[in-house]
């Protein structure tokens, strides 16, 4: 298994498209940091309008922790595209290049090949998140320092003590890894059906965008189906920023995402084992 995984990782990280994602995240984070560095206090004044009408807020609200939260909130909507770019390419890309038929004639079972490819995609996902964590958390804190984290939610304001924040980010990135792996698993599953990676990538993004809109909109008809959309659970990392952490829904969401991952993976293997390679 390890040699197969090495080969798949080698193939992923030898491709220039893999680094588009890292560059894109770097650019977005740099832009957000620059914006906050130049004009952060105005953003804060604007963002906290509803609160400052009746409250005096003292202290450094604009700090590295807050910026990391904003970056996570902003980026985790876009990262699925970058994940799909690689995961959706895993099988479809090989089919498109014509290398799939050579790969399948090798004395390696299709299941193991898929597992190696999926694990490689997951490692890519995790590396991308680590890169994001490095930029969003380490660099933000380096530039803006730490402090209490104030989060405005739709109906409440949460302030978390400086010393009570960092572990929540570790947990949040851990959760984000599960959420993004779910995206990878979906793109990977769709990848089996296509002979061109555009299809799985666009389909994955469409599913996620439509589901996210349904998850986010506060409309009664949609509310009943919300619990059944995996995108509803993908923002579970925010649960770690409740005080106290609402463990049971967060763990439940993580469990549901893990079930999705397992489901997609099993379906992928099931379909691919029976698939005739005609590319």
């Amino acid at each position: 298994m390890w040699p197969l995984l090495q080969i798949e990782l080698f193939k992923i990280f030898k491709r220039s498209r893999t680094y588009i994602s890292f560059a894109a995240i770097g650019a977005i984070v740099a832009l957000i940091l620059l914006a906050f560095y130049a004009d952060g206090n105005n953003y804060m004044a604007f963002g906290m309008q509803s609160l400052t009408q009746s409250f005096d807020i003292q202290g450094k609200v604009l700090n590295g922790y807050l910026i990391c939260f904003i970056i996570l909130q902003t980026l985790l909507i876009h990262v699925p595209l970058l994940i799909a770019l690689v995961a959706g390419d895993q099988v479809a890309g090989e089919a498109n290049m014509g290398t799939l038929r050579l790969l399948i004639t090798k004395p390696v079972s299709r299941t193991r090949l898929l597992l190696a490819k999926f694990i490689a995609s997951t490692l890519y996902t995790i590396l991308l998140l680590l890169w994001m964590a490095l930029l969003a958390l380490v660099v933000s804190v380096w530039i803006f320092g730490t402090g209490d984290l104030m989060i405005l939610k739709s109906t409440e304001v949460v302030i978390l003590e400086n010393t009570d924040v960092l572990w929540r980010y570790f947990a949040a990135f851990g959760f984000a890894a599960i959420a993004m792996t779910t995206v990878a698993a979906l793109a990977f599953f769709l990848s089996v059906f296509a002979e061109n990676s555009i299809g799985p990538i666009v389909t994955t993004m469409s599913v996620i965008i439509v589901f996210t809109i349904l998850s986010t909109m506060d409309i009664p008809i949609f509310n009943t189906i919300k619990p059944f959309l995996f995108t509803t659970h993908m923002i579970g990392w925010k649960g770690f920023f409740d005080a106290p952490v609402s463990w049971s829904p967060v763990l439940q969401s993580a469990g549901i995402l893990l079930l999705h991952i397992a489901g997609f993976l099993v379906a992928t293997i099931w379909v691919f084992r029976k698939k005739d390679i005609l590319s």
């Binding site: 509803s50 739709s154 506060d218 409740d242 967060v250």
Partner: peptide, 22 residues
Amino acid sequence: NTSTFKLPKGVTMEYEGSKNTN
């Protein structure tokens, strides 16, 4: 005296799990 506090959910991207505990 406090007034209530509300931001649109579309802006805050609320996590449903949090709502249950609230």
